[in-house]
Each structure stands twice: as structure tokens, then as C-alpha cells.
């Protein structure tokens, strides 16, 4: 019985050996075939390159990830200067406590930046506006802002029609505003520029019922070109539709903050 078992094992061994030899021979044949074939050579070369790149990647991974940061280990174990005992744990707790305290203070300070009174945010890229009170959104809608047109006049004088980004404040609230046309309004239409007090400078009922002055001649006002709301078409002012303008006029006060981006 034992002899039979031995024989079986020997047979199995030789069988595996033969199978191994066969597989090796087959692989060798296949490899030689590949070597004699153009595509095969290219395939082999690609395989060599892939192997080299893989080796480099594994090496780099080991260098960056596998090898621990020695300095960090030294520091965290204290390099023998601070033993990891109760004193260290106490110190760590103290530090944690002070950091948590600092964080609470900083968060409190951060919250003070958000105005508690209504303020308006104007998005000049999308031509949208948002009225907030604290972090609560009161109203949003379409508006029109600067067209980014650079108007070049005859005497090489130029104007850029863009809404200035940054923070501004409402300086004045005006009802039934009248537009006093600046020089560029005439130059743009090819009309000779009149004197500052000339009647052609004044246009009525084009700015809507209200206007809010932001300084430097920029206004938030109404428009007669309601179809163009949501597009960058103005000379720098912010245009709103009648309802939105009324809401903004009633909710924002002189001194209210205006954020333009």
C-alpha cells in the first residue's frame, strides 16, 4: 500500500514536471515566434517599457509612501527629550483645550463679518442679484451689468463700460431719477458733445422710479430695456426690473452694503 502511494507521488511529480516543461517549451516557442514577427517585436518592446515604468512607479511609491518620515518619528517619540508618559498626555490635553478655545473665538469673530442688516450681492458674470439679511436670502433675480465695451473716441479718449467689483455702500436713495447724460453717451451715438447744462443732457423716465447711488456715478436703477435683463449691456450701472427695484429700494437703506463680483 505504502509503495503504491510512493509510486503515485512519483507519477504525480513527473506529471507536473512534464507539464511544467511543456508550458516552458510552449512559452519559449511563443516567445521565439514573437521575436520573428514585426508586431511581436513591437509588443515585446512595449512590454519592456511597461515593465520599466512599473518598476519606477513602484520604486517612487516606496520612496514616497513606504519609507516613513524619519524626522516625524523622531519628533513624535520625542527623540528622548520628552518621554511619552503622563506629562506628555497632560500637555497634549492642555494644548487641545487651548486650541478648541481659540477655534470658538475665531468662529465667533468670523460670524461677525456677515451683516445683520439687508445687503445686496451682484454677480456680474451671470447678471444676477441676491438680497440677503444675515444669511437668509430675501430676494434674487436678474439684472444687467457692464458690457465690457471699450469705447474709443476721436481724440483717443476711451471709456470702459464695466461694473466695478468689490464692496460699495448705498450713498443716496433717489425717487424719480433723471439721467444726466455724460459725454460718452453722445460720443457713442456720433452726436457732438453739448455743454454740461444743455437740455439734451437730461433724459426723463429712463431710469425707472427709483435709483440708489453707489458713488463714482454708478447707480442701481430701473430700465426700459427689460428684455435685456440678465445680459451684460450697461455702461457700468446695475439695471433691475420695476418690482425688484422697488423691493431693493424699500429694503436697503443708506449705508447698506453692496457686494459686486
Amino acid at each position: 500500500m505504502k509503495d503504491q502511494n510512493k509510486l503515485d507521488i512519483i507519477n504525480a511529480k513527473s506529471h507536473f514536471q512534464n507539464a511544467g516543461k511543456f508550458a516552458f517549451k510552449e512559452f519559449n516557442n511563443y516567445y521565439t515566434q514573437l521575436k520573428h514577427n514585426k508586431l511581436g517585436i513591437i509588443f515585446l518592446w512595449i512590454w519592456y517599457i511597461v515593465r520599466i515604468i512599473l518598476t519606477i512607479l513602484i520604486f517612487s511609491f516606496l520612496m514616497i509612501e513606504g519609507v516613513p518620515n524619519i524626522s516625524e518619528i523622531q519628533v513624535l517619540t520625542g527623540s528622548g527629550k520628552i518621554s511619552p508618559d503622563k506629562t506628555l498626555a497632560k500637555e497634549q490635553d492642555k494644548l487641545k483645550e487651548s486650541l478648541t478655545k481659540d477655534l470658538a473665538q475665531l468662529e465667533k469673530r468670523m460670524n461677525t463679518f456677515t451683516p445683520i442688516y439687508p445687503y445686496i450681492i451682484i454677480n456680474t458674470t451671470e447678471n444676477k442679484f441676491y438680497v440677503f439679511k444675515g444669511s437668509k436670502l430675501l430676494k434674487e433675480g436678474k439684472c444687467s451689468t457692464g458690457s465690457y465695451i471699450n469705447l474709443i473716441g476721436d481724440n483717443k479718449k476711451s471709456w470702459i463700460f464695466k461694473t466695478p467689483r468689490g464692496e460699495r455702500k448705498i450713498l443716496r436713495k433717489i425717487t424719480s431719477p433723471v439721467w444726466k447724460k455724460p459725454d460718452w453717451a453722445f460720443i457713442e451715438e456720433g452726436i457732438p458733445v453739448p455743454s454740461m447744462s444743455h437740455s439734451s443732457r437730461f433724459e426723463y423716465n429712463v431710469l425707472g422710479d427709483y435709483a440708489l447711488a453707489l458713488g463714482d456715478g454708478y447707480l442701481i436703477h430701473g430700465t426700459i430695456y427689460k428684455r435685456q435683463l440678465g445680459m451684460p449691456v450697461t455702461h457700468g450701472c446695475v439695471r433691475l426690473n420695476d418690482d425688484d427695484l422697488e423691493f431693493v429700494y424699500k429694503n436697503l437703506t443708506v449705508g447698506s452694503r453692496v457686494f459686486i463680483y
Binding site: Y148, N150, G153
Partner: peptide, 13 residues
């Protein structure tokens, strides 16, 4: 930015 040259007169605008 877009550049616009001012017209010489109203017919050119």
C-alpha cells in the same frame, strides 16, 4: 473686453 470705435456722426452709429 470688446473694442468699439466711436462713430463720426449719427449715420455712422
Amino acid at each position: 473686453m470688446m473694442i468699439k470705435i466711436a462713430p463720426k456722426d449719427t449715420s455712422d452709429a
